[in-house]
Amino acid sequence: MNKSFEIGTLLLRVVTGIIFFVHGLSKFTAMEGTIQFFGSIGLPSFMAYVIATIELVGGVLVFFGLATRIVGVLFALTLLGAIFTVKLKAPFMGNSEFDYLLLVASIHLALSGSRFLALDSFVFKAKKEENVSA
């Protein structure tokens, strides 16, 4: 991959990680309201914890470049759920376009990963070197 692509993906990864972390944190700090909202759209209350955890922990992982592809898939599934349960009623109104943009960013991260300044690169490089020298 060329350097421009890697830098662009790094920027996308870091910003996406921050956004999801903040959204997960806000869900946890107002969990009663989050549970009520999930109930109002027909989702069981435990899903509020699942989604908040994916956003909070996944945001940190993606920010640092750990398990980027896996978390990208989880983010994309979370966003598809949000779009189909809430946002599809008024597409491209309010902040729903933000969800579509995050969906595309998540799909990009799931497909391409992010190696530039990612901890995965250092972790797996060290493991690969151990396997070669053994």
Rank of each mutant, 00 (worst) to 15 (best):
residue 47 M to L: 14
residue 75 F to V: 07
residue 101 L to V: 15
residue 61 L to C: 15
residue 43 L to P: 07
residue 31 M to T: 10
residue 87 K to I: 04
residue 78 T to L: 08
residue 97 E to D: 12
residue 84 F to L: 14
residue 125 K to A: 13
residue 59 G to S: 05
residue 65 G to Y: 01
residue 89 K to Y: 12
residue 73 V to Y: 09
residue 94 G to E: 05
residue 109 L to S: 00
residue 33 G to D: 07
residue 18 I to Q: 06
residue 109 L to Y: 02
residue 59 G to R: 06
residue 6 E to F: 02
residue 104 V to S: 08
residue 49 Y to N: 12
residue 123 V to T: 08
residue 26 S to F: 09
residue 128 K to C: 04
residue 29 T to H: 10
residue 46 F to Q: 06
residue 10 L to C: 03
residue 62 V to D: 00
residue 119 L to T: 01
residue 77 L to V: 15
residue 134 A to G: 13
residue 30 A to D: 15
residue 50 V to W: 11
residue 102 L to V: 04
residue 78 T to M: 08
residue 48 A to T: 04
residue 102 L to P: 04
residue 1 M to C: 11
residue 134 A to C: 08
residue 120 D to Q: 04
residue 19 I to D: 00
residue 60 V to A: 10
residue 83 I to R: 03
residue 101 L to R: 06
residue 71 V to D: 00
residue 39 G to E: 13
residue 121 S to E: 14
residue 68 T to H: 05
residue 119 L to R: 02
residue 26 S to M: 14
residue 106 S to G: 07
residue 103 L to T: 06
residue 81 G to L: 07
residue 69 R to E: 03
residue 94 G to N: 13
residue 94 G to A: 03
residue 39 G to T: 12
residue 56 L to W: 09
residue 37 F to E: 00
residue 65 G to Q: 02
residue 39 G to K: 14
residue 86 V to M: 08
residue 28 F to G: 11
residue 64 F to Q: 02
residue 103 L to F: 13
residue 95 N to G: 14
residue 30 A to E: 11
residue 15 V to F: 14
residue 39 G to W: 07
residue 37 F to T: 03
residue 71 V to W: 02
residue 9 T to P: 01
residue 43 L to C: 06
residue 97 E to S: 03
residue 77 L to Q: 05
residue 118 A to R: 07
residue 61 L to R: 06
residue 63 F to H: 05
residue 18 I to D: 01
residue 119 L to I: 14
residue 22 V to R: 01
residue 63 F to P: 04
residue 30 A to L: 10
residue 128 K to F: 10
residue 30 A to H: 15
residue 111 L to R: 07
residue 12 L to H: 03
residue 115 R to Q: 13
residue 32 E to T: 13
residue 11 L to R: 03
residue 91 P to I: 07
residue 62 V to R: 09
residue 126 A to H: 13
residue 69 R to F: 03
residue 77 L to T: 10
residue 37 F to S: 01
residue 110 A to L: 03
residue 82 A to P: 03
